[in-house]
Structure formats: C-alpha cells, structure tokens
Simulated scan of single mutants.
Amino acid sequence: MKTKAGFVAIVGAPNAGKSTLLNQLLGEKLSIVTRKAQTTRIRVLGLITEGDTQIGLIDTPGLFQPKSKLERAMVRAAWDSLEGADLVLLIVDAAARQPDAKVEAIMQELAQRKQKATLVLNKVDKIRVEKLLPLTEQLSATGMFDEIFMISALTGDGVEKLKAKLLGAMPAGAWHYPEDQLTDVSERLLAAEVTREQLLEQLHDELPYEAAVLPEAWEERKDGSVMIRQTIVVMKVGHRAMVLGKNGARIKEIGSAARAELTAQFGRTVHLFLDVKVDERWQEMGEYYRVFGIETK
C-alpha cells in the first residue's frame, strides 16, 4: 500500500482554541484545556492514522510577547514547531471580531518567514454570520492564506471538513509511527498535565499560571494498577497554602478529580499522590525545562 505522512503545526494566540481543536480532530482528549490563557506549555504531538494517511498534529504553546524565561522558551518552542511542518494552521478566535495585536504579530512573523498557512477561524458558534464576514474578508485580503475554514472546535462544527483537507494535503511517504499510536508524549508527562489542568481549573482566579507539576515516580503494580507521585511547584509560600487549602481540603479535591480522569484515560486504577513545594526560582532552572521537553538557550 502506498502511504502518505506529514506534520501539521497548529499555531495561534493564547486561548484561540488550539488544544480544543487538537482534541476534536483526534476524537480523544490529549491536550489539557482550561479557561486560563497560556495553558499549553509543552509541545504535544497527536497522531491521526486513517486509510493510507498518517498526520502528526503539533499543538504548540500560544504565541505572545514573552517576558519571563519560561515564556521565552514556550514561544520559541512554538515557532520551532514550524520547521519540518508540511502545513501550518493559524487558529484565530473569530468571536473577537477583529485580529488583535497578538494575531497581527503572529501574521507579521509568518510573513517574514515567507510561511504560507491555512487560516482557521474558530468559535464561530459565538458570532453571527454577518459579523464574521468582515473579519474573513480582512484576513483573506492579506494573501497569506491558501484556504480559510470556519469552525467551532468546541462543538465540532466544520472540523470534519478541515480534517479532510489535512488528510488530502499530506505528501507521499512512510508512516513515522505505529498505526495505533496516539501521541509521542509519555504517560508520565500526560499524567502531570492532567493534574496541572485540575490545578488551574480549581484555582483559576487565585493561582498564577506559573505553577508546575513534576512527575516524580511511576510504579506498575501486580494488580494492573499504577502508583503515580507528583510534585506541584509554586513560587510563593502563600500559593502553597492556596493549593493545600484548609486542612488539606483543596489538594484532596485536585487529586481526586485528576485521579478520576487518569483512571478513565488509562483504563485502569490510578493511585495518585501529590506533594507541594515552594521554589521561587524554578523558572530559571534548566532541570525543570528538561522535564517538560522545552529547550532553553
């Protein structure tokens, strides 16, 4: 059988819906999704294998003007994902009605790189058609996009049409991964991301996004279950108190919710143990970045 294979980089501003789109395309939850901007930190590769075609979908951190070392590493990882990509999807939040400064900066960078892209206007379920057309015409007039799709990554509207375009655009070549593989991200790191998702969801307004979840131990047990130990790292003593909650109530809630999702995701019993520590300088230390698979320079 002649096969096709390629990679698609999904880029866009924070909260444009990149991770939601990845999950919708895969039909499975792989990237974490929260209300908080800049949730995605690691490069997540999701794999679609249908018929004779395999697509590697690369979900990237949101593109914005970085300030900290962590943010610079995240943005650099996102731009690096374009190298070797056969197709680039620029996801734009259509509900915003006008491209903001972040979207314009991304488009300028794409233009400087002479990078053609496919434009995906997301969240069309939140805007009336007559409001959407001016935005479509404005972005189309730039001449940067080979095609424009209007979708709702949340509801799935328009996603199958986009998926068909991706499958048809992949070049001839051998598959890079086994047919039944969903991602190249380790289960240890995926589990840490699930816990971080619960951390951000339950402490959305109180806790800065700078908190990290580190995988510490993974033990396979004879009964088929798995024991996972993770450490939540925060930058201030006050943040640690928030995560723990009164008499440890909050961290128990975070652990319970993460444990339930991991059990469903892995299809077996998960024993999850969480610790919380304070490290004011964790964002400046290379060992943390290596855990996330982020390169520092």
Rank of each mutant, 00 (worst) to 15 (best):
W79S: 12
D59L: 02
Q65N: 14
Q65A: 15
K69S: 05
T53G: 07
G56N: 03
Q54S: 05
L70V: 07
D59T: 01
G51T: 07
T53R: 14
Q54K: 06
T53A: 14
Q54W: 00
M74A: 11
F64M: 13
K69Y: 00
D52H: 13
R72K: 15
G62W: 01
Q54V: 01
G62K: 01
K67G: 15
S68C: 05
G51R: 10
D80I: 00
E71D: 15
D59C: 02
P61Q: 05
A73I: 02
F64G: 01
P66R: 11
P66W: 13
A73M: 08
G56I: 09
I55Q: 02
A77H: 04
T60G: 07
G51S: 07
S68D: 01
T53L: 12
Q54R: 07
M74F: 04
K67Q: 15
M74S: 06
G51A: 08
L70Q: 03
A73Q: 10
F64C: 07
D59Y: 05
T60L: 07
A77K: 09
A73V: 05
T53H: 07
K69G: 02
D80P: 08
A77D: 07
G62M: 03
G62N: 04
A77N: 11
T53K: 12
D80G: 15
E71A: 14
D80F: 00
Q65I: 14
A77G: 10
P66C: 06
A73Y: 05
T60A: 11
R76A: 14
A73C: 11
